[in-house]
């Protein structure tokens, strides 16, 4: 569903991504871990077509992103780290607007149903979104993704800054989408959330995938140990 094929991105001298190979299958949640600057956001940008790869390809539902910039986005939903909405519109209006842009117009009862599904309190549906908390905005972002009936979902640090309860609710919703056959690629710093949600986990460092494994391969504190070890090793290699 989502596939990176020798995906490489250079900004001048800096290699942000070096020959990434990755595949996320339908119904799977793939968590990308790694320190800042490891290449997680670059990966997201390449799948979204926000940046052009220096080499390699990004595939969405069998479409090469670079050659099908618009079509590939029909199948792709994206929730950025900070969901920014139009502050003078309500959550419902934002949903209507973005869903319309996505080519899946929704109205009236559908909007209410979607917002209820993501757990936005009914009283907030028609309030200015400028007054929303971050968690509420993330929920609207999720509702936009759901409305699109996308087959792949990109999540960029979606739970950072959310309180544990909001974070939990968010995970539950992602899982429910996953159960419907959506492929999810999630970049995160939250090891706990990754272990809880992921079917598979990849650790990135300095633009490379340095470890990959199923969540079943690990137990207890293993993930933290593996993560720190790989990140340290990568840093040593870079220094040498």
């Amino acid at each position: 569903m989502l596939r990176a094929e020798a995906l490489t991105k250079r900004y001048g001298e800096v290699e942000a991504l070096a020959g990434l190979e990755l595949e996320v299958r339908p119904g799977e949640v793939y968590c990308l871990l790694g320190p800042n600057g490891a290449g997680k956001s670059t990966t997201m940008n390449l799948f979204l077509g926000f940046a052009a790869p220096t080499a390699g390809r990004a595939w969405v539902c069998g479409l090469d992103v670079q050659h099908h910039l618009l079509e590939s986005k029909r199948h792709l939903a994206y929730i950025p780290e900070q969901v920014h909405l139009y502050p003078h519109l309500s959550g419902a209006e934002n949903l209507e607007y973005f869903a319309g842009l996505g080519g899946s117009a929704v109205s009236g009862p559908e909007v209410t149903a979607l917002l209820e599904r993501v757990g936005l309190p009914a009283a907030a549906h028609h309030r200015r979104s400028g007054e929303y908390s971050k968690g509420m905005r993330q929920k609207v972002g999720l509702a936009i993704a759901v409305a699109k009936r996308a087959r792949a979902l990109l999540l960029d640090e979606p739970t950072s800054g959310l309180d544990p309860r909001a974070s939990f609710e968010f995970s539950r919703l992602v899982r429910s989408m996953c159960d419907e056959g959506v492929a999810v690629l999630m970049a995160t710093h939250d090891l706990f959330r990754a272990r809880d949600l992921a079917s598979r986990i990849g650790i990135m460092s300095a633009g490379r995938l340095v470890w990959e494994g199923g969540s079943g391969d690990l137990a207890g504190d293993d993930l933290e140990r593996v993560y720190l070890e790989h990140v340290r090793r990568a840093a040593e290699e870079a220094a040498a």
Binding site: L48, L69, A77, Y78
Partner: peptide, 18 residues
């Protein structure tokens, strides 16, 4: 600057069209 552009352009719509 308001941050809405990323969400907008993640929809199937070109910057020029938008």
């Amino acid at each position: 600057e308001r941050g809405t552009l990323r969400l907008v352009l993640s929809q199937p719509i070109s910057p020029a069209g938008f």
